[in-house]
Design a protein around this nucleic acid. Sequence first.
DNA 1: TAACCTAACTAACGACTGTTAGGTAACGCT
DNA 2: AGCGTTACCTAACAGTCGTTAGTTAGGTTA
Lengths: 202, 202
Amino acid sequence: MPSAIGASVAPDTQKRVPDSRREILDAAAKLFLEKGYGDTSLRELAARVGMKAGSLYYHFTSKEQLAIEVLRIGVDTVAQTVRARIEEAGPVTTPAERVSIAIHAHLEALLLKSEYTSAHIRCFPYTPLAVQEELRAVRRAYEDIWARLIDDLLGPDRVEAEARYLRLAVLGALNWSLEWFDPKRDDAGDYAKALEQVILRA
Amino acid sequence: MPSAIGASVAPDTQKRVPDSRREILDAAAKLFLEKGYGDTSLRELAARVGMKAGSLYYHFTSKEQLAIEVLRIGVDTVAQTVRARIEEAGPVTTPAERVSIAIHAHLEALLLKSEYTSAHIRCFPYTPLAVQEELRAVRRAYEDIWARLIDDLLGPDRVEAEARYLRLAVLGALNWSLEWFDPKRDDAGDYAKALEQVILRA
DNA sequence: TAACCTAACTAACGACTGTTAGGTAACGCT
DNA sequence: AGCGTTACCTAACAGTCGTTAGTTAGGTTA
């Protein structure tokens, strides 16, 4: 009776096995976000997923490797979110429209969607140098998306240094929201709109 | 020969005694800035001022108290810098001029003047709750300066929520500069001017 | 059934943490 | 000359850290 077995398997196809690895990554992202890298202990992390500290080493070779993986997912998430939203808007958008879309998408990933992204933004600077090295490429790739967006916005007779400062100002206004955003009080979309208004007047 | 003694004392009046307490605070600010609160060890801090860890307890009652003192100096410095610059400009300034002055002053304190201020900005969120509690009032006082500045800029028919978002966006763009500012490449005044241009178009 | 793999466990290592108690030189004041 | 204070030291406490070695129960495959 293979059909009966097949039928009984069908309803819960995607995670018959409790995916411990993903659970660890999820919990690590949350802990890194709320405590930072150095103050996150593997024992507390293990406890949150119902394990002992030593068992984590079955899934990851070291705390640094774990951090690399978490923070990489963080950048990838926000980068893919922004790219996807711009793609969805079609090929005939103005530079200003694309900047607006990117602002909304960045905040969506940072504040609503991904603890990985917020963990990255918050604790990257206090991570061991080996971790920072490992993430340089992915971070650079995401920065380049914004460099392109801002360059298009300012047009061909922009001053390069000013474009850079504008980009960093926008990213600062976006990322700093982690420090004050309160879901009970604030709305990510509202803030995106406010920010978009300020920027799209130049 | 009291006059001779008096003359010999005069040249070095202000710090005949090497002010260890201030040296510790200075070194702590630097360490908090580069490593964060949790990863700053009292032994390394002591080593930087030529002491042993236990000796720090002659000057401070705990690591938390030390952090409170460092971070408080950080806010006080930036608040006094901003207030002083606005004061210097005289009583007949426009709201836009005052915002411009505040932007320059905030960046001056954050990036050039005070490791205390940058230490505060960078590691406040990862500080023990007791420390955060202790600093709530001073932080609030500085926020209020900016709330006033932005309110004046937007005028009486502003929307309260939008004023708040604008204020947080500006402070985000300012504070985030800690993450990318490189004295060899960047100029704090230039960034201030770029930022001022973006903001004073609304 | 025997061999192997998976996913966890326990127990311990050495290093490091903030903190405290007690000791000790050097100094100013009486 | 002696006393008290200042500003440090040494040594240790109890606890935590990341990490490793060795073990074990349950499932899969030969």
